[in-house]
Lab assay of single mutants.
Amino acid sequence: LTVHVGNVTYHFDNPEQAEEWAKRMAKKYQGQIHVKDGQFRIE
């Protein structure tokens, strides 16, 4: 699973971990989480 934050990409084996990280990053950067094809993108 991949989480994109700006132009930085993080890889996770565990979906719960990826989702948790995406939520934390979205809160930190006050962005929206977009989920597409098993990838999380924070914008």
Results as ranks from 00 to 15, higher is better:
H4I: 14
L1P: 12
W21K: 00
P15T: 09
R24Q: 13
F12I: 00
V5Y: 09
Q39N: 13
A26L: 06
K27E: 13
N14M: 06
D13F: 06
Y29G: 03
P15E: 10
I42M: 02
V8F: 13
Q32K: 11
K27Y: 05
I33D: 03
N14F: 08
V3Y: 01
F40N: 09
D13A: 06
H34G: 04
H4P: 00
M25Y: 07
G38Y: 02
K36E: 14
K23N: 08
A26K: 02
N14H: 09
K36A: 07
F12G: 00
D37S: 00
V5L: 10
E19I: 13
G38Q: 03
W21V: 02
N7V: 05
H34F: 13
L1C: 15
F12T: 00
W21M: 05
E20W: 11
H34Q: 12
H11S: 06
A22S: 02
L1W: 15
I33L: 11
Y29Q: 03
K27L: 10
Q17R: 10
V8W: 12
M25R: 00
F12N: 00
L1V: 14
R24M: 13
T2S: 09
I33S: 03
E43V: 14
A18E: 01
E43F: 09
T2I: 12
V3N: 00
Q30V: 05
F40T: 11
E19M: 14
M25T: 03
F40Y: 12
N14G: 04
W21D: 00
F12R: 00
V5Q: 01
V8T: 09
L1N: 14
V35T: 05
K27W: 04
E16M: 11
A22M: 07
M25P: 00
A26R: 04
H4K: 12
K28Y: 12
G31Q: 05
E20V: 03
K36H: 14
G38T: 01
Y29M: 08
K28F: 11
E19C: 15
H34V: 15
Q32P: 04
V3C: 03
K36R: 08
E43I: 14
H4T: 14
T9I: 14
G6K: 04
I33Y: 04
V35W: 13
N14P: 00
I33K: 01
H11G: 02
I42D: 08
A18G: 05
M25E: 02
H34T: 14
W21Q: 01
G6E: 03
K36L: 12
G6W: 05
A26N: 03
F12D: 00
L1H: 14
H4V: 14
Q32I: 14
Q32A: 10
I42L: 02
Q17C: 15
G38E: 05
H34I: 15
P15C: 12
A22V: 08
R41E: 14
T2R: 09
I33F: 06
Y10H: 07
A18R: 02
Y29E: 02
Y29N: 03
F12L: 00
N7H: 11
H34L: 11
M25I: 10
K28C: 15
F40P: 08
G31V: 13
D37I: 01
V3D: 00
G31M: 14
D13M: 09
G31K: 05
Q17D: 13
T2V: 12
Q30H: 15
D13S: 10
F40L: 15
D37W: 00
E19G: 04
Q39D: 14
K36C: 15
V35G: 03
F12S: 00
P15D: 05
Y10P: 01
V3K: 01
Q32Y: 07
N14E: 06
E16R: 10
I42V: 11
I42F: 04
G38M: 02
Y29P: 01
G31H: 11
F40V: 14
G31E: 05
H11E: 08
E43Q: 05
T2D: 06
Y29D: 03
V5S: 01
K23T: 06
K36Y: 10
G6I: 04
K27G: 04
H11K: 10
Y29H: 09
Y29S: 03
T2Q: 10
Q17G: 04
T9S: 09
K23A: 06
L1K: 09
T2K: 07
F12A: 00
Q30P: 07
P15I: 12
V8E: 09
W21C: 15
E20F: 06
P15V: 12
V35P: 02
H34K: 10
Q32T: 14
Y29I: 09
F12E: 00
N7L: 08
H4A: 08
F12C: 08
V5M: 09
G6S: 04
G6Q: 03
